[in-house]
Design a protein around this nucleic acid. Structure first.
Length: 295
DNA sequence: TTGCAGGGGTCAA
DNA sequence: TTGACCCCTGCA
């Protein structure tokens, strides 16, 4: 059958999508936007999102999603993998100079996932002053103690816990997850979301600046975490999350001097406009994989 | 083996 | 504007 421009087939609890362009699993899952996907030796990726566990195989323009029904594909994965977006168009638009052409060429096949905003929020609170392998471990541990278990292919996966699950817990209880000083932020932020002090569902319809300010009401959420939350949930794309890495990269590639966080963000959002978030992701991945900006 | 610096930020002083 | 912060890793 055809679904929104793709040839889709269902067989053996799997979905095969033909005609998928610009989707490289490694580049997408290793570019720092997500923490719950892991690569297998055959190049496939397994992961959990939206309460489902799946395994993905990409061969040419053919995407195979194991453990997936047609309904799940339509209701969950189509949007999650941003399959409604034409990335060749997007790439043309952000290839504004030689630097971006290089970055985009290098990171070809990166897609910005439209992840669950609640999971992204908590994951990026954990990311503060932390490293990716650690963040992955902490998110996995929190899911294991508070999330629902999902069996797939003889393995047990764990869904990311819901708002109530975390809000009903305590900093002491989740301390075994090794989130350290971030434990209290996680619990307090969860309670505020549960109480409706911050309504995550409304952020998408708000002005980007307002949405960011709203998120910054939550403990453990500053400018950077707020921008990541907005970007990686697909709520707003005119943000340019600027951490020390992105700062160094921008200083080296664009400024040729030291620049402040504020200066870099303002320049980037002005220069890349509504697609700033995509530009950030390609630049960040390019720089990190090539060790650009390392002193 | 042991010890120490520092990490994709945020908060409080 | 600056240091502390949990905990882990890398490296003397």
């Amino acid at each position: 059958m055809m679904y929104r421009g793709y040839d889709v087939q269902e067989e053996n609890n799997s979905i095969i999508i033909n005609g998928v362009k610009d989707f490289n699993l490694y580049n997408t899952f290793e570019c720092g936007q997500c923490f719950r996907w892991s690569g297998n030796i055959d190049g496939s990726y397994s992961g959990v999102a939206k309460g489902r566990a799946v395994r993905l195989h990409m061969t040419g323009d053919r995407l195979l999603i194991e453990n997936c029904t047609l309904d799940d594909f339509k209701n969950i994965w189509f949007d999650y993998f941003d399959l409604g977006r034409d990335y060749s168009d997007l790439i043309k638009m952000i290839s504004k100079d030689d630097i971006m052409k290089k970055a985009v060429g290098f990171g070809k096949g990166i897609r910005l996932l439209r992840q669950d905003i609640w999971e992204v929020l908590i994951s990026f609170i954990i990311s503060a002053n932390n490293r990716i392998p650690m963040i992955k471990k902490v998110v996995a541990a929190i899911s294991e103690i508070l999330g629902d278990s999902i069996g797939f292919d003889g393995e047990t996966f764990f869904a990311f816990p819901g708002v109530q699950d975390l809000a009903g817990s305590s900093a002491d209880e989740i301390s075994i997850c090794k989130a350290g000083f971030r434990c209290k932020y996680i619990i307090e932020a969860s309670r505020m979301v549960l109480n409706g002090d911050v309504d995550l569902g409304k952020l998408k319809d708000m002005d980007t600046a307002d949405a960011r300010n709203e998120l910054c009401k939550l403990p453990g959420v500053g400018h950077k975490v707020a921008d990541c939350t907005l970007l990686f949930s697909g709520a707003h794309y005119n943000v340019f999350p600027t951490d020390v890495w992105v700062k160094r990269v921008m200083e080296e590639l664009y400024f040729n001097r030291e620049a402040s966080f504020r200066e870099i963000q303002e320049f980037s959002v002005r220069y890349f406009g509504d697609l700033a978030g995509f530009a950030q992701q390609y630049l960040f991945f390019y720089a990190r994989e090539n060790k650009i900006g390392i002193r």
